[in-house]
Nucleic acid binder design. Structure first.
Lengths: 226, 226
DNA sequence: CGGAGGATTGAGCCTCCTCAAGTGCAGTGG
DNA sequence: CCACTGCACTTGAGGAGGCTCAATCCTCCG
């Protein structure tokens, strides 16, 4: 499942730590991808699906005018690469070096050979529909602050590590990627980070390293004016 | 597939006229639903999938604060009701009386009994992922005018009927539904309709009946400032 | 005729975008 | 070692698009 930022704090779907992707004895293809590598491009014939074990992926689409739009980020536990028809409809590249489990598409589509994996991939596809719907709701209705806070919350939940009473995590994507994903501009993203810093809700070690100082405040900021 | 309003004019996916849903000899369950009826609610156990033959469905989700958000509209040719896990994650009700073909969920999930329908439903699920991604891109980056024009274009393409040189179609959903779907307010939707009327791009018979007077102008209005 | 609900229109404001300048850091080369 | 350059991020000023609040219109229906 992708980062989706639903209003209700998101549960950890198929976290690889708890439920490792390899549960049967069959050999699984797992590969290491370096930052900047592409898993596939838009229009490529889709032969594989990809499960993120570690690292972060970026799914983008190129618009008519050549600009790139970030559709989703692939975090550990996500399965990406579901095609439309036989072809990929996004680009997918690696933001921070990733371990990826590769599944054959036909296992997903037919599955006679491996019903267990087939079911697993099917559920991932359905989760993705739900996730995209969550994302749609956020884009349609949330303010800049609510979007940023929601985004940080999900990253914190899914990739954060505790440090004392706080949680810390890294932002492998640029401000431009965040802005693209949330339907904002770079400047608004940056300003919103500044507001959160000044209110002592978060702290930034580097611009790519976030420390959550006040989780309750972040949750408040992520929710609509209810 | 749902109404998605991608930038490139959308092709007609599985139009029921050309490729009727019933291609095999097995008996298919087809039912009539009246306006206002619910196909399912959020949280319901998902036993079926639904293919729209005629009419229009509305898929919504209820937020914490009780407000309703329109996720998608189901037009003829769409297949709706893909669950997340075993449960529906949206409400689905009927905006204009609809003929619906009902599929059993287990045919979609397993499909040993009916590989052909299984494949058909699987493709629909994948199309839906793609469609939601298109919708995300629109919500994130398009102006009010671009959203409305794109929305009208899709409805015109998918449900329009020619009248002389023009195309006409009905809007079974309220302004509030349109606003919700596009991430706008009722007032902005109404004002944008007015602009399109005054520029002779469209005409409104009733507020629910659209006549496309200048298709090229509508296409122009639907595209970003490229 | 009167009321209700949806749609339209208007005025004012606010959030976020645009444009522009400034800052900090990493890499490069003198 | 230090200037130079490039890039990402931050900050500021100003403006515009869309929202809010409110009034009005239209149509349907009792």
């Amino acid at each position: 499942m992708y980062v989706t930022l639903s209003a209700e704090p998101m549960s950890f779907h198929t976290p690889s730590v708890i439920q490792p992707p390899c549960t049967q004895s069959k050999p699984l293809v797992q590969r290491q991808f370096k930052s900047g590598a592409y898993l596939y491009h838009e229009g490529d014939d889709a032969t594989n699906l990809y499960e993120v074990v570690s690292g972060v992926l970026r799914l983008t689409r190129v618009l008519e005018n050549g600009k790139r739009q970030v559709i989703a980020f692939g975090l550990p536990g996500d399965i990406v690469g579901f095609p439309n028809g036989t072809r990929h409809h996004t680009d997918c590249d690696v933001l921070s070096s990733a371990e990826i489990v590769i599944y054959k598409r036909r296992v997903f589509e037919a599955g006679e050979s491996d019903p267990e994996t087939h079911q697993r991939l099917l559920r991932a596809a359905l989760r993705e529909i739900s996730a995209m719907q969550d994302h749609v709701m956020m884009l349609a209705r949330k303010s800049a602050m609510e979007k940023i806070a929601s985004f940080l919350l999900v990253l914190s939940q899914r990739t954060g590590a505790p440090i004392g009473n706080y949680a810390t995590f890294s932002l492998p994507m640029s401000r431009a990627d965040i802005a693209d994903f949330l339907g904002l501009t770079i400047e608004t993203v940056s300003r919103t980070f500044t507001i959160l810093r000044k209110s002592k809700t978060i702290a930034l070690g580097t611009p790519q390293t976030v420390l959550v100082l006040d989780l309750d405040a972040l949750i408040d900021a992520s929710q609509a004016d209810t």
